[in-house]
Structures are given as structure tokens and as C-alpha cells.
Write a protein that binds this DNA or RNA. Structure first.
Length: 452
RNA sequence: GGAGAGGUGGCUGAGUGGUCGAAAGCGGCUUCCUGCUAAGAAGUUGUACGGUCAAAAGCUGUACCGAGGGUUCGAAUCCCUCCCUCUCCGCCA
């Protein structure tokens, strides 16, 4: 696998000086570089075109100009009234003209509103541009392995985590289904404790490394989801509380990135680092039949998330730092992993560049994703109106956002079970986690215990 | 859930239907003064989208005082609807 170093072809840097808010990509940039934008989008999996957008935008701007001219005349008329310059003979005529102008304006406004809606929906439907350093590729086969860490354990006939977990009284899959539906699992005694221990361990480690811990709401409003990019396109994967128009978070990325929505931060405050634990809820709409066994793909799962807000110039350095911070958890737990650079076709909608961290699953004999670390550039910042005032006092600029799992807790638990399994069916506890479990060193099946 | 108050620029906070993009203060920026990590003086300081310009500056047009409607030649200011915030009461972990 080849490593693709950053190139400087179509410079994503030109996106750093946005002029308008509430767009995902800078409209001006799209207008002026439509061909290059098309080309960058073509690298993604799926059909995205800006041609229609450019057309609607042009029509909208024409109308805008007409509308402004009508307003200008209206203002002139009222100026005549104000200054008393209008002849008495003219007054009635001016009143009539103004009314007529209003009628014309209303006509234009009708079309404008319709066009604006269309424009918004077109804009929100266009994904972020893959960075130049992102390799081409249609799907995960195009991803590039960047590094591997740790020694893959030699286990003969490794058991799957769901087998180990059931024997060790960690998971109760059947009762999870009874209580909710499929893809819901009950964590029994040691499972519950392990999950809680992992949560605390991860938050503590990240806190030590400079992330400020937050615990946000787990129900969020529509604006948040538009801000981070889940809406309007990916609503089918969300759980919704229809009566309140609130949604269960699919990731802590949503509430944490929206912490500073519509705010102007000071450059001195950046980089802001947050870590947050939340449960996450996903309908897994497109995942029918995938990972139906085990604890890998649940409708509800726990995760610690890392989120960064930084100045545009630093975001790629911060992406590396963030990825290392996520990897630090796996290294502390001594779980073998690799890092992959996602190709353009496999990247998330909002991302400019993404590293996946994949942990080794012995029974599956492969690496599975446990974290996804992305630089979004100013894409989310535009949608969520996240800005900062430069230290030199200039105009507010959009900042850059990043996030990554640090880590998915359920998958970490599953990975521990598999990688730390012993031939006698017991599972050792990683040293780093033992203090969080009262010094416990292993999980052992209770032969004499009756399954309650 | 009941009653009341309120939503104005980066922040605090004035604002009689036209002189308000909006007083004042704070903060920011620039300059001056002062020999000391301070204080003072003056000026300046919203955002977005257009036009002019090679470009920037400048000039200029339009919009924006919670959102959306209405009245009016003209609305931050009057009317209606909605949203949100705060205070008191009730209820509750």
C-alpha cells in the first residue's frame, strides 16, 4: 500500500477565507471554481454535482438585484415624504407608485423564497471536499494503511467476544432484545462494571492529556444536526422524539461541536479540546444483516468522543494529535491496532480527511474500526456558524473542527475479551484497567453459579 | 402547568413611526502623552450580499434591532402569530 503525502494541487487552502455563513462550502468558491469543485466531489462515492446549484444561485442573485432596485426606489419615495420635498400634487402619485412597487416586490419575493429553499437544500446536500492528501478509491479497499501497532496475540481457536461474554456473564443478548428489540444488549454484572471502568479510564486519560471534559444533553434539536451534517440527508439513521422535534444523539460530536454554535470565540481560546462521554443511538438503517451477532453494532452504544476547535492553519496538525490521543487508549490497554487513511470514496459526508483506527479481533481474524478521526475543515463551522476573532482584531473567521472517537467503549470491551482470552475460557484484565475494577485481574466463569 | 417581565451591535444597555445601523458605557483597534509593567487624552470600531476598481482602500446600493406575517408612502418603534429567555408560584429526581 502506498502512502500518499499531502500534495498541493487544488489548494483547499483557498477555502480558508469564507465570506458567507450558512453554506457548507463557500458559495463564492463554488461559483468561481465550479469545475474544480466538481472534480473534487467526483472522487467521492455517490453523485454530487454543483451545476444545478450554480444555475439556481445565478437566478437567485438576479432576482436579488431586481428586488434591491425596487427597494431603492421605495426608499427614495419615502425620503421625499420625510424631507417634505414632495409636491402636494405628487403625493397621491407617489403613494400609488410605492404601492405598485410593493406589489412587484411581493411577486419577486415569492420566487426568491422558493429559490432560496432550493438553494439551501442543494447546498446542504453537497458534501465536503476531500483534501488533496486523501487517496482516490471507491470503498474501503482503497484505504491506505498508515501504521500498525502491537503484537497480534497467538491464540489457537480464538472464541468470539459474544461467546466469551455470554459465558462470563458479561452480555445478556436475549434479554436485551426482550426489553427493547434486536441490537440492544444488557450488560450484566462484570460487563456493566467493565463498561463503566472503560468510560472512566478513557475520560481520565484524555483529561490528563488536555481535553476538557463535558457531559452534554443527549437529546438535541434540529439545528445541531444540521450543524454537524447529519441532517438533512441522513435523518433515517436517527432516533427522533417527534413530539418535541428532538433527536437522540448518534454521537457526542453533535452536541459538543454545537457547544459554540453562533458564537464568536477569541483566537487566544483556541485550540479548544473537549472530551465527552455519551450514549449514542443509531437506527443502523443501512446495516441490515451486518454484524448481527455480538456487541459490535448496537442501536445504543457508549462512546467517549474527542472534539477540537482550532484555527484553520493548524487543523491538520491537530488531526495528527487527535489521532495519536485516540491511539493512546489502545496502547495503554495494549490492544493491537492499525491506522488507515480513508480514501475519498469511503469518507464520511462532512469530512475533509479521515483516519480510521482499527483494533484487532482475533476470532474474526481482522481489524475492525474502533475510532474515526476526522478533520472537517470549515465545513461544520459554516453550517454551525462557529467563528473566532483573529488576534490581530480582524473580521471573524470560520474556525476548523475535528473529532474522533476516543474510543467506542463497547467495541473496546469486545476487543479486550477477544485479545485477552485464555485457553481456559477466562479473560485477563488489561493492567491499565485494573485500578478501575478494584484491582481485579481476570474474569473467570463461575462454574457453580446458577444463571439468574 | 399557572402568573408576570423581556428578547437591540463582541458585551452591558438607551431608543418619541421618518433625523436610527441605531445613544451611552465596556471591550477592541490607532495615535498622542507620561520614564516605567498603570493611568490619561483624541479618534476609530457590526454583519452579509451586490456595484464601482486590475486589486486593495475608498465610495456606493440593499438587507439585518428573536422569527414570521400585517398596518403605513415609510416600522427597532404600532398590531397579530410563533419561538426563546428570565422572575415568582406549583410539581418533581
Amino acid at each position: 500500500m502506498a502512502f500518499h503525502p499531502p500534495s498541493n494541487a487544488l489548494s483547499i487552502k483557498t477555502f480558508e477565507h469564507p465570506k458567507s455563513s450558512k453554506t457548507m462550502l463557500d458559495l463564492k468558491l463554488i461559483r468561481e471554481n465550479a469545475a474544480e469543485v466538481e472534480k473534487a466531489l467526483a472522487r467521492r462515492n455517490g453523485q454530487f454535482s454543483v451545476a444545478e446549484l450554480v444555475k439556481v444561485d445565478q437566478r437567485f442573485r438576479d432576482l436579488q438585484t431586481q428586488w434591491e432596485l425596487l427597494n431603492q426606489r421605495t426608499n427614495e419615495i419615502s425620503e421625499l415624504f420625510k424631507t417634505g420635498k414632495a409636491d402636494k400634487s405628487q403625493i397621491e402619485q407617489l403613494r400609488a407608485e410605492s404601492k405598485e412597487l410593493k406589489g412587484k416586490r411581493e411577486e419577486i419575493e415569492k420566487e426568491k423564497v422558493a429559490l432560496e429553499e432550493e438553494l439551501d437544500s442543494l447546498r446542504l446536500g453537497i458534501p465536503n471536499l476531500p483534501h488533496d492528501s486523501v487517496p482516490d478509491g471507491k470503498d474501503e479497499t482503497g484505504n491506505v494503511e498508515i501504521k500498525t501497532w502491537g503484537k497480534i496475540p497467538a491464540i489457537s481457536n480464538p472464541k468470539h467476544h459474544w461467546e466469551l461474554g455470554t459465558e462470563l456473564d458479561v452480555f445478556d443478548f436475549e434479554r436485551g432484545v426482550k426489553i427493547a428489540e434486536s441490537r440492544f444488549t444488557v450488560l450484566m454484572e462484570m460487563g456493566a462494571k467493565m463498561e463503566r471502568a472503560l468510560m472512566n479510564f478513557m475520560l481520565d486519560l484524555h483529561s490528563k492529556r488536555g481535553y476538557r471534559e463535558v457531559f452534554p444533553p443527549i437529546l438535541v434539536n434540529r439545528d445541531c444536526l444540521i450543524g454537524t451534517g447529519q441532517l438533512p440527508k441522513f435523518g433515517e439513521d436517527l432516533y427522533k422524539c417527534a413530539e418535541d422535534d428532538l433527536f437522540l444523539v448518534p454521537t457526542a460530536e453533535v452536541p459538543v461541536t454545537n457547544l459554540y454554535r453562533d458564537e464568536i470565540l477569541e483566537e487566544e481560546q483556541l485550540t479548544i479540546n473537549h472530551c465527552a462521554y455519551t450514549p449514542n443511538f443509531r437506527r443502523e438503517a443501512g446495516a441490515a444483516g451486518k454484524d448481527t451477532r455480538g456487541y459490535i453494532r448496537q442501536h445504543q452504544f457508549n462512546k467517549v468522543e474527542l472534539v477540537k476547535f482550532c484555527v484553520p492553519e493548524k487543523s491538520f496538525d491537530e488531526l495528527e494529535a487527535l489521532t495519536l490521543d485516540a491511539e493512546a487508549i489502545l496502547e495503554a490497554l495494549e490492544l493491537p491496532y492499525r491506522r488507515a487513511l480513508l480514501c475519498a470514496g469511503d469518507m464520511g459526508f462532512t469530512s475533509q480527511k479521515t483516519f480510521d483506527i482499527e483494533v484487532w479481533f482475533p476470532a474474526q481474524d481482522k481489524y475492525r474500526e474502533i475510532s474515526s478521526c476526522s478533520n472537517f475543515g470549515d465545513y461544520q463551522a459554516r453550517r454551525a456558524n462557529l467563528r473566532y476573532r483573529p488576534a490581530d482584531g480582524g473580521k471573524p473567521r470560520f474556525l476548523h473542527t475535528l473529532n474522533g472517537s476516543g474510543l467506542a467503549i463497547g467495541r473496546t470491551l469486545a476487543a479486550i475479551l477477544e485479545n485477552y482470552q485464555q485457553t481456559d475460557g477466562s479473560v485477563k484484565i488489561p493492567k491499565a484497567l485494573q485500578p478501575y475494577l478494584g484491582g481485579l485481574t481476570e474474569l473467570r466463569p463461575k462454574k457453580d453459579s446458577v444463571k439468574v
